[in-house]
Simulated scan of single mutants.
Amino acid sequence: MQTVFEAAGGTDGLHRLADAWHRRVMADEVVAHAFSHGFHPQHTERLAAYWAEALGGPTTYSDSYGDETTVVRMHSGNGEHDEMDRRAIACFDQALADVGLANNGTLRQVLHDYFAWATTTTMSRYHHSSADVPNGLRIPRWSWNGLQQ
């Protein structure tokens, strides 16, 4: 059976999705605030690599950039931001349409569910301080059936 990574177009498909999402969030007055301090010049490449690994693709993110602890720490210590999360998810859904991944209802739903889960669970778990994030976290894996334990 094809992985979610493969169904989403592999590395190239997820890079297109990451680029479309990034453009959407930078145009959103609420979500763009998260990037007001700046961002890595290879943000979309790194984001695509992270999503690829989470969705059943190669381990490029873990091999080259860091582990889940690294990612979660980048997103921690900023207080609660439910409105920003909600709008980031809406931008993701729009980005799916932008790159043609919304046409397959099953794939669209799995990708939406993954992004919504990651945004509201792992990326927003440590509101108070990035120092609260434990060491050694592994990138969660997501399949057609959701989170893989």
Rank of each mutant, 00 (worst) to 15 (best):
48 A>L: 07
33 H>L: 08
46 R>D: 09
6 E>R: 00
19 D>E: 13
36 S>K: 05
44 T>Y: 09
136 G>H: 01
92 F>K: 00
23 R>W: 07
54 A>D: 01
57 G>L: 00
90 A>Q: 12
27 A>N: 04
45 E>I: 08
6 E>Y: 02
31 V>W: 06
1 M>T: 09
49 A>F: 04
108 R>G: 00
111 L>K: 10
18 A>P: 03
132 D>W: 01
104 N>D: 15
17 L>V: 11
40 H>W: 10
3 T>L: 07
128 H>F: 02
136 G>L: 01
89 I>H: 02
124 S>T: 07
103 N>Y: 02
12 D>T: 14
68 E>F: 12
82 D>W: 13
104 N>M: 06
84 M>F: 13
136 G>D: 11
149 Q>V: 14
48 A>K: 02
57 G>W: 02
136 G>K: 09
70 T>R: 12
64 S>F: 04
114 Y>F: 13
74 M>G: 10
146 G>A: 08
29 E>G: 00
112 H>A: 02
39 F>C: 14
26 M>G: 11
33 H>Q: 11
62 S>T: 15
75 H>M: 05
123 M>G: 04
42 Q>R: 12
47 L>D: 05
101 L>Y: 00
41 P>H: 11
88 A>T: 12
130 S>Q: 05
14 L>H: 08
143 S>N: 10
128 H>I: 07
85 D>H: 13
11 T>A: 15
127 H>K: 13
8 A>T: 05
129 S>P: 00
36 S>I: 07
60 T>P: 02
10 G>P: 03
56 G>S: 01
26 M>W: 04
130 S>A: 15
95 A>Y: 03
93 D>C: 04
75 H>W: 13
148 Q>A: 11
118 A>Y: 03
116 A>W: 07
28 D>C: 01
125 R>S: 14
113 D>V: 04
82 D>A: 14
100 G>C: 05
85 D>I: 14
89 I>P: 06
12 D>S: 13
85 D>E: 15
19 D>N: 04
124 S>Y: 04
28 D>H: 07
116 A>N: 14
99 V>P: 00
49 A>G: 06
136 G>P: 02
101 L>G: 09
114 Y>K: 04
100 G>Q: 10
108 R>T: 00
105 G>L: 12
87 R>E: 13
12 D>K: 11
51 W>A: 09
135 N>C: 06
111 L>Y: 12
124 S>K: 02
93 D>P: 01
78 N>E: 07
4 V>H: 12
81 H>A: 11
124 S>A: 10
83 E>P: 12
6 E>A: 04
145 N>H: 13
145 N>T: 15
